[in-house]
């Protein structure tokens, strides 16, 4: 094997001299980009906005929280929909770097690691009571994790607008107004790059998901 290695090295030296002008923008080994079975890939495909979009306008509010103001609530009142879930006073902005937010959130109840197949990136599921925060490795830097999704999984957690698991579809419409998209299985409200989705089990909400929309 050593002889082979020496032969290869000699050959390589000649090759490199010949090829250094090659350049280009391609990286070496294909990037260890988002993992095979990462949270990002296990999610549903991005949804198209419905034609019946309500008028949505983003405004800045204290606490770095992006708020979308929506008209069209069922009761005729204007409601404000927040697309960044706030947990214990900490806004969780999907798409942003995870580490500073996780530090602010403090100790989680449990964490589940989902390493990418073959590569080094790891997706994480952090649980804080009835809230599950999912992160995924950055496409270009596997050591950097980003916030991908926030799931409200039981009735101990409510949206910033007060809707929680177990509430009815009618409760939702009364607070949030007409969804941007809905089927019998879910109602979705979205703004640029983000959505909050209410998954239904019959008339009742079974899970609430704040997520990225590509």
């Amino acid at each position: 094997m050593n002889r082979k290695a020496i032969m290869a090295a000699v050959l390589a030296a000649a090759m490199l001299t010949a090829m250094t002008g090659c350049g280009g923008d391609t990286a070496g080994t294909p990037a260890a980009s988002s993992g095979a079975d990462s949270a990002a890939e296990s999610s549903a495909p991005a949804m198209e906005a419905s034609e019946a979009d309500p008028v949505v306008e983003s405004v800045e509010v204290p606490g770095d929280e992006v708020i979308a103001e929506e008209s069209g609530a069922a009761d005729g009142e204007t409601v404000q929909i927040t697309f960044d879930y706030v947990l214990n006073g900490t806004p969780i902005v999907v798409g942003e770097e995870a580490a500073p937010v996780l530090e602010k959130l403090g100790a989680e109840d449990s964490v589940f690691e989902a390493p990418s197949c073959a590569f080094t990136g790891v997706s994480y599921y952090y649980t804080y009571g009835g809230v599950q925060v999912i992160t995924y490795p950055d496409e270009h830097d596997q050591s950097l994790n980003r916030l991908y999704e926030v799931d409200l999984i039981d009735d101990t957690a409510a949206t910033n607008e007060g809707i929680k698991v177990g509430d009815t579809y009618d409760d939702l419409i009364a607070k949030y107004g007409k969804p941007d998209q809905e089927t019998p299985a879910y109602a979705s409200y979205q703004t640029e790059g983000k959505a909050v989705r209410f998954f239904l089990d019959g008339e009742n909400i079974k899970q609430i998901v704040y997520t990225i929309v590509m």
Binding site: P45, M47, F112, T127, I134, T183, Y186, K206, Q207, V209
Partner: peptide, 12 residues
Amino acid sequence: AGKTPTPTPLTD
């Protein structure tokens, strides 16, 4: 294997 997280429902 520890506690498996709650699966996120899919839209489709």
